[in-house]
Write a protein that binds this DNA or RNA. Structure first.
Lengths: 356, 356
DNA sequence: CAATCATGCTCCATCGGTTGAGCAACTGCT
DNA sequence: AGCAGTTGCTCAACCGATGGAGCATGATTG
């Protein structure tokens, strides 16, 4: 008898499981073998019903229904590890992200997850605390999970990660900070910064009749984004023939406290300030609070990156909001296209003006 | 000859791989079988060297060194899918998180990842946009990745997720919002809110000589955390024998715009305001901007949850900062203890006073 | 009525790593 | 020399899902 032979074979294959099939207290989750035994069919049939290939494999509707019902009743979930091991693709997309502590990275994380899910992929984000060693370790870890694709966001050393991915034959892409060994998708920091600078210059001229160089504060000179923003900042001054003294560019890190101290130490307080990040803006606000109200009201500032509280500051004349949706739309397009030339692509920013 | 038999067997096992071993252009990553062939040993030996069990398995230092060198040179990374499939534990811990758009959840995500890594576990966070259906789908997905443990943070319906986990025999735990079917770890919303209310009442009395009921704004009445905070808010009034009119409690959601409109519509503007979230605080600040400066200066407010910009508002007298480190410390302790009784545990908040 | 085809399913090898069992070879002891 | 014990390694089964190959049926056609 073929049927009993099959059953015997199943039983031999997995004694413990078989005896647990009808045991609701069993903590082991059911497998396709368990369902096959319950329904009285083969594991292959069960698998193909559950993964959708059953039509192609000419399984009858009747059997499919029985299998689906059994799966439902027994709370079956596929074992992805086994599935991925067997298939060529994992459908997992990994992302390395420096921090979750600001709106920009938070929005990137959410948008990435949403788009990945919409594309039928499983997103895994891992946060690397701006630590190069952790970035590398995390990349390696994601690779060992067989990600199909790895996105390095704001990575300290994206090229090293690209190398790892290349060795593993995994697609990769740099977001927010460029690398030379994979496609890079960035905000147009130059244009955003230039437009913001113009707005601040306009406000100073309009409100105070002053045409002075602005103060640039925050960021690091060795940081690509700071360099580009500085370039935009200087371009806006050059086009108005305002010369820029070196002392007006303070780029000694993003930390709020550092910015506050630098501002406190200045002999001549500028009317217009270009703030290079929302985190630096915290320090600027702290400093503003220490000024007499009348003096504080005679300052205008604009910030690169958006924060809803920052936008409500009376001194605020504009914030550059990066187009997170646009950045990730392009990211997924590039992934899909399979392109892997190390070209850099810019996505325009949006200038958010105060609405009050 | 045993050696040649072994090699022949290996070759038969995997023709394509074997011929690729020395091919640097091959995009396939090396496996333990490849390394075994390179070094001239068995896959078992390679595996045990690479996963650290070689001492126990009495592999010689010499062979271990050779294997490690080969692994290094060929950029070997373990295939976790295969490894997890065979082992009983995955060492993956999953977390469901509503949003990444505020400091609280951002900090939870970072702290969770840090602690998981420190415990030798692999953290996977997935963001569910406060969507109950997505929460459930995400939980199912994480289970199919064989997570050892699943943490529901701020989940709409944590009990449903607990049920899923129970069926799969997976440990689970609720964070930030309580459930009835798994251990819950929450901030002590009651005490935090009561203490904050006291501070605001103190400030109104000290600065304006007024002993009036405060305004409570933000949140939802059916939300556990709002209920607890409201209880603390009322307790602080009761202990001072201040009676609370219903009209002073506005709990129609967290949205900033909603809060602003409610405030605009009030006939009598209160001196003291209890703001139930930083997101609601945005609306309050928006409204403050619309007031004459002199009037705005005669308001004191405190907020549940912390935001660095919010802390810098001149009207701010305190922010309740939830103890994210404490919450996650307890979370990991409970996980480790294996406890699964549905008890709720409270973690104290910290009252952050303005420092200027 | 035999040959052909479609239908509905099962068998088996496979993905890569892990683990219990076991086997040579060598050492030390009586 | 004989035996136990140690050292250093290999074998083979297994985890759960998947897909190509193939095998009985039953229906259709010349």
């Amino acid at each position: 008898m073929i049927a009993s032979e099959f059953e015997a074979c199943q039983y031999a294959r997995n004694q413990r499981k078989s005896s647990d099939v009808n045991d609701k207290n069993s903590s082991k989750r059911p497998t396709i073998y368990d369902l096959a035994e319950l329904v009285g069919t083969s594991p292959t049939a069960v698998s193909s019903v559950l993964n959708g290939s059953w039509k192609k494999r000419r399984i009858s509707q009747k059997l499919a229904d029985k299998v689906l019902k059994a799966a439902q009743e027994n709370g079956y979930t596929v074992n992805i590890q086994a599935s991925v091991l067997r298939r060529e693709r994992s459908n997992i997309v990994g992302m390395i992200l420096p921090k979750y502590d600001n709106r920009f990275f938070g929005a990137i994380a959410e948008e990435f997850e949403t788009r990945a899910r919409a594309a039928g992929l499983f997103p895994v984000i891992t946060c690397t605390q701006r630590d190069p060693a952790l970035e590398l370790a995390a990349a390696r870890e994601l690779l060992s999970y067989q990600v199909d694709c790895l996105i390095s966001t704001g990575a300290t050393d994206p090229d090293q990660i690209s190398d790892l991915c290349r060795a593993a034959g995994v697609k990769t892409l740099n977001l927010d900070l460029p690398g030379t060994k994979a496609p890079s998708i960035l905000s147009d920091n130059f244009t955003g910064a230039r437009d913001l600078t113009r707005i601040i210059l306009d406000a100073c001229e309009r409100d105070f009749g002053v045409v002075d160089p602005l103060l640039f504060i925050g960021g690091r000179k060795d940081d690509h984004n700071t360099q580009e923003r500085l370039r935009g900042f200087l371009a806006a001054h050059t086009e108005r023939e305002i010369s820029m003294p070196q002392s007006q560019i303070i780029s000694e890190g993003y930390a709020p406290e550092k910015a506050r101290q630098s501002l406190m130490a200045m002999r001549r307080i500028p009317h217009g300030i270009f703030v290079n990040s929302t985190i630096t803006l915290e320090g600027v606000v702290y400093w503003l609070q220490s000024l007499p109200a009348e003096r504080a009201s005679r300052i205008r500032c604009g910030t690169f990156d958006f924060d809803p509280f920052g936008a409500l500051l009376p001194q605020n004349v504009g914030m550059v909001r990066q187009d997170v949706q646009g950045l990730l739309a392009r990211t997924f397009e590039v992934i899909k296209s399979g392109k892997d030339s190390a070209e850099t692509e810019l996505v325009a920013c949006h200038l958010e003006m105060p609405s009050f």
